[in-house]
């Protein structure tokens, strides 16, 4: 269990850095959805299923869709 937690935390840091470093904003949005998914599993391990459920619905679902809608109205690449 602790090994899985360490792996997930490392993955969380990695995805957070990837979101910040990516110039392609579409990839950044998709990696951000992965970040939310990892965070949601972490909440579940930390015995907060309530927060995990909300994180999965809002973070991985609705935030991604809304950011994609914004992206469709602006440009794909960061200048």
């Amino acid at each position: 269990m602790t090994l899985l937690t360490i792996f997930l935390v490392l993955l969380l840091v990695l995805t957070a850095f990837a979101v910040e470093r990516t110039k392609d904003l579409l990839s950044a949005v998709i990696v951000f959805a992965a970040f939310s998914l990892v965070l949601s599993v972490l909440w579940l391990i930390l015995k907060a299923p309530d927060v995990a459920l909300t994180e999965a619905a809002v973070g991985a679902g609705i935030t991604t869709v809304i950011l994609l809608a914004v992206l469709a109205k602006t440009e794909r690449y960061e200048r």
């Binding site: 309530d50 679902g61 609705i62």
Partner: peptide, 21 residues
């Protein structure tokens, strides 16, 4: 059980948004 109005409402909203997309 875990969850409640906000989580369930967000899931329902996600379903509606999926339909719209």
């Amino acid at each position: 059980t875990p969850g409640g109005g906000f989580s369930g409402g967000a899931i329902l909203g996600a379903a509606l948004i999926l339909y719209g997309l």
